[in-house]
């Protein structure tokens, strides 16, 4: 079935106040910067969406992307593994002032919780985090003599992800290590929006090369020559 192809502004209109939103990317690799900035444009114009819970590996760098969302006050809570990057002032200032919540999750557990949600697995056991402060209060059970921590699936209302090529069924391929969290987030969100560099007709992607099948994707936005977050940060861009 065809997924919807939309302009940027329409694609992010599904996100409401208090939504839980997964945003793909690891550092600047795989970050859907145009989708994030379209969401920021909407917030600047209307004050909405706000009180968002954002799921990403990091918590934004510089003054673009997720960092700009945080600085502008759109984000109530971050669920991530590594919010302390070299230039993560937007998050640090809000966190130390007690103005943003943080759920810190070990990186592999974060990935697996997202995958589990997409696969319909409510919980799983992992050795990661056992005996640490991040496992406090969690159920522990031994398997083959190894103590493991129970972790729950992590779902989202919407996922904003970046891919390379899409066909009109929403089948996706990715570029290099920009793949990272995207295939997992596509599965775990109720509504997935993919920004892609190129949109092709069905048959334009070899079925054997499809990484994310279109069944996991609701909307596609074509953004040729997408901006690279790392380069925006190095250039000192400010989207606040």
């Amino acid at each position: 079935m065809n997924c919807t192809t939309l302009p940027l502004a329409d694609a992010v209109s599904v996100i409401e106040d208090n939504s839980v939103v997964m945003i793909s990317g690891f550092g600047g690799s795989g970050t859907p910067i145009e989708l994030i900035h379209a969401l920021i444009d909407r917030f600047k114009a209307s004050g909405s969406p706000n009180n968002l819970t954002i799921i990403n590996n990091n918590a934004g760098t510089g003054k673009v992307g997720i960092a700009a969302m945080i600085k502008l006050g759109m984000v109530k809570k971050m669920i991530c593994s590594f919010p302390r990057s070299s230039d993560a002032h937007a998050f640090s200032e809000k966190y130390l002032a007690g103005e943003i919540e943080l759920e810190l999750v070990p990186q592999g557990t974060l990935a697996e919780r997202i995958r589990a949600a997409g696969a319909g697995i409510p919980a799983f056991f992992t050795p990661a985090g056992f005996g640490t402060e991040l496992a406090e209060g969690k159920t522990v059970q031994e398997f083959d003599g190894k103590p493991c921590v129970m972790e729950h699936w992590l779902k989202a209302d919407v996922a904003l992800i970046k891919a390379d090529i899409a066909d009109s069924h929403g089948n996706l391929t990715y570029r290099l290590a920009a793949r990272n969290f995207s295939p997992l987030m596509c599965m775990a969100a109720h509504h997935t929006v993919a920004q892609v560099s190129q949109l092709v007709n069905p048959g334009g992607i070899n079925p054997e090369h499809v990484v994310t099948p279109g069944i996991f994707v609701e909307a596609v936005v074509e953004v040729p020559n997408p901006k690279q977050e790392e380069l925006l940060i190095r250039a000192g861009e400010d989207y606040t």
Partner: peptide, 15 residues
């Protein structure tokens, strides 16, 4: 104190 950040360290030590 400060902003906690764990990354993959807790996963990497197992397995």
């Amino acid at each position: 104190k400060g902003v906690p950040a764990v990354g993959g360290a807790m996963d990497l030590v197992h397995g």
